[in-house]
Design a protein around this nucleic acid. Structure first.
Lengths: 203, 203
DNA sequence: TCAATCAATACACTCGATGCATTAATACAT
DNA sequence: ATGTATTAATGCATCGAGTGTATTGATTGA
């Protein structure tokens, strides 16, 4: 499937990975605000300018590869089956995002780190929040376009907002409480169930 | 009620107001990113340093006096009547916030301006999102403390997240669509109704 | 082996934000 | 009225994030 990436591309990915690991290590030790981009670059043995070649901002290094999650949700909407109603589609989209969170950020502890760091770094907290709202917005637009007759833009936004809002708030609360990855995933799933009101499902 | 503020205090408020008005005017004309703090200060005829004496960041000037809204919601929870259940309390809290939005930000067009500016200014978009999430978090904690036996922290977060998520998403969508203040308020109210599921109310 | 591409670098610069010392106007007590 | 304490506002120096631009040097493909 993937054409072998070539030496240049491999080296690029290596420096990117080195930057991420250096950043995470330094953030863990000293906190987000007390680490400069220059430090990160030095620890990764590249120039400061190179950091900004890979990441738009200092925060972005903590959200590397996280955009995939939104794409998964959009894909779930795009690949809906013929007669499927939008509540089910929305739930499937959320399940995709939850599964991906589990695989990439929850088990690795990255999600927990982000929330911990955000406690004391307003910029990071803002960026974290923005990601949820952006996901909401894009998912709402996709859902509106998939069901244009039944969901006007505002109704779609409200529906998706309730869902994503519940899940994100539950996730944050669970992470802040220090729950295990399994606990966080349970919190996410229960939030989904809460919004789907009267429908119960097996544990 | 309010002890006459005194000359010093009045002057302070005047410079604050001058900064706000200068900032809004410049942002409207040139966009958020293309206005420097130095420009704002110059337009308000104060020094750059003075700007940061009144506002923590360049974004904050667009959210002046907006923290009152969260306090109103918290107050609604604190002043709940004896036998009241949490769904009603939450709805009342939301109605407080909606009413305050209407009075201060919606009719003045400030809310619309913020959303318009946020389109092209990532920092501003992040800050805007952060405000919603912060409101969620604080309201959830208040509700949990008000009903500690019936709502554990995560459940409260999910419930409040659904409500605030729905309202904020609907608000954003409505503002982006260019709705009138009345239209936006309607969108907010419908979002509340959506979350309260099966309960209908008069227009 | 030559030319094209592109990741990484160096350097200069803008701008947001903070610390600190100073000024001058207001507030307050005698 | 007069002296003293506050404190809003200022000036100056500095840090750190982020960008524009030109350059170097290693990979790529012919």
């Amino acid at each position: 499937m993937t054409e072998s990436p070539g030496l240049r591309e491999r080296k690029k990915r290596r420096t990117r990975q080195a930057l991420i690991e250096a950043a995470v290590r330094l953030f863990e030790r000293k906190g987000f605000e007390h680490v400069t981009v220059a430090e990160i670059a030095e620890a990764a043995e590249v120039s400061t300018r190179t950091f900004f070649l890979h990441f738009q901002t200092k925060e972005d290094v903590l959200f590397a590869n996280a955009d995939v999650r939104i794409d998964l949700a959009l894909q779930a909407v795009a690949e809906r089956r013929a007669g499927e109603r939008f509540p089910e589609v929305l739930v499937r989209a959320m399940e995709q995002m939850i599964a991906n969170s589990w695989d990439s950020d929850l088990t690795s502890g990255l999600a927990a780190l982000r929330v911990r760091l955000a406690e004391s770094a307003p910029v990071l907290q803002a960026r974290l929040s923005q990601r949820y709202v952006t996901a909401q917005t894009e998912l709402a637009r996709a859902l509106h376009q998939a069901y244009p007759d039944e969901l006007d833009p505002v109704a779609a936004a409200a529906l998706v907002g309730a869902m994503v809002g519940a899940v994100s708030a539950a996730t944050l609360a669970s992470l802040r409480r220090g729950d295990s990855p399994e606990g966080v995933r349970n919190a996410m799933r229960q939030a989904v169930d809460l919004v789907v009101c009267c429908r119960h499902r097996a544990n």
